[in-house]
Structures are given as structure tokens and as C-alpha cells.
């Protein structure tokens, strides 16, 4: 089962994702895609680590190429977050590329190998600000990735002020 959770900043996406995986009894992995550069990233990582404490997740830091990740069949996975993964795949030392197809393929293949895959992603296209072209391109690509993942997912949920608003399917909890 693939579940996509989308929302803005601090809207309770992670808490919801962890709650969904709480009921999962098999091995649980947390794929952390945020690179620990800068004070904000380190604070966010520390906060999320604390939230997951004692919840039985094994943390895997993986910033790109989720398709190459080997995990035991039938496990539960929480991937957080697609916004970072998309940026990491897009802005490479050798230049900017469009990773939408690769990311969607990787997520489909991960979902096929796992019993439960919960993907946390970000809503970044609603601030109406005109950014530099590469940022505008990032917003477009992440929007495309989100749409394609929602199409592939069994359930898509938007988080608003901590409240899950179902966009597609049903939440298992």
C-alpha cells in the first residue's frame, strides 16, 4: 500500500505519517532525505529524531537514488520528505536535471517491495511569489512528482492544521 501525505510547513504531516505506521507490526524503516547542512536542517533532523524515539524505526539517511536502496521485502517505510529528495536529485554538481520520471519509478519499485510505504511531501506552489527560474522549475517538477505519486498511491491525504483531509482512498487508521 502506498500513502501520500502532502501539506505546507508544520501542518502535522510527520505526526500523521508516524501514526499510520504505528499500527504496522513488521520491520519499519525511516528514509531521511534531508542533508544535514545548516543550522535549520540540523534542528529539524534532531526534532524529528526525537519524535520517532521509541517508535521502532530504523533510520536510513539516503539523499538520492532511492531505487538503489536494498530493504527486506514486506517491510514498512516512511520516506521524508519528497521535497528534499526532489531538490537533491534535481540540483546536481554537474547541473540541473528533471528527475520526475526517475523519482516516480523509484517510488513505484519501492512500493512494490514494501507492505506499506508512506511518503511525506510538500505543497510548495501556493505562495504566489515569482522566484528565480531554477526555483520555478523546482516548484513545477515537485508538483508533477506529487501528481504522479498521488495517481499511483492507494491513498492521498492533505494535512491542514494537523487534520487529515482525504483526497483519494481511505486511511488505514
Amino acid at each position: 500500500m502506498m500513502i501520500l501525505i502532502i501539506g505546507g510547513s508544520k501542518c502535522g504531516k510527520s505526526s500523521l505519517a508516524e501514526r499510520i505506521l504505528e499500527g504496522f507490526s513488521g520491520d519499519k524503516y525511516y528514509i531521511a532525505t534531508m542533508q544535514p547542512y545548516g543550522e535549520d536542517a540540523r534542528e529539524a533532523i534532531a526534532r524529528h529524531r526525537k519524535m520517532r524515539e521509541g517508535r521502532g524505526f530504523e533510520t536510513i539517511e539516503r539523499y538520492t537514488d532511492i531505487g538503489g536502496l536494498v530493504l527486506p521485502d514486506g517491510c514498512g517505510v516512511l520516506l521524508e520528505c519528497m521535497g528534499n529528495l526532489c531538490a537533491n536529485e534535481m540540483f546536481r554538481p554537474e547541473g540541473i536535471c528533471d528527475p520526475a520520471e526517475t523519482i516516480v519509478r523509484d517510488m513505484r519499485s519501492l512500493s512494490a517491495r514494501t507492505a506499506l510505504l508512506v511518503i511525506v511531501t510538500n505543497q510548495v506552489g501556493s505562495d504566489g511569489i515569482s522566484y528565480a527560474p531554477e526555483t520555478m522549475e523546482y516548484i513545477r517538477i515537485l508538483g508533477t512528482v506529487n501528481a504522479r505519486l498521488a495517481a499511483a498511491a492507494d491513498c492521498a491525504v492533505e494535512c491542514v492544521c494537523g487534520i487529515p483531509v482525504i483526497l483519494k482512498g481511505h486511511l488505514p487508521c
Partner: peptide, 22 residues
């Protein structure tokens, strides 16, 4: 709702956005 955009460059703007969400 103010959190559905790109992470702001300025630290104070980031704090505002996150605290508003909380």
C-alpha cells in the same frame, strides 16, 4: 494558511512560517 510555499531565505521568515503552522 501561509505554509504552502518555498522555504523562505530569511531565518525570521522561516520561524514565522513554522510558528504559524504550529
Amino acid at each position: 494558511e501561509i505554509g504552502c510555499g518555498i522555504v523562505p531565505l530569511e531565518k525570521n521568515d522561516r520561524i514565522l512560517r513554522e510558528q504559524t503552522g504550529r
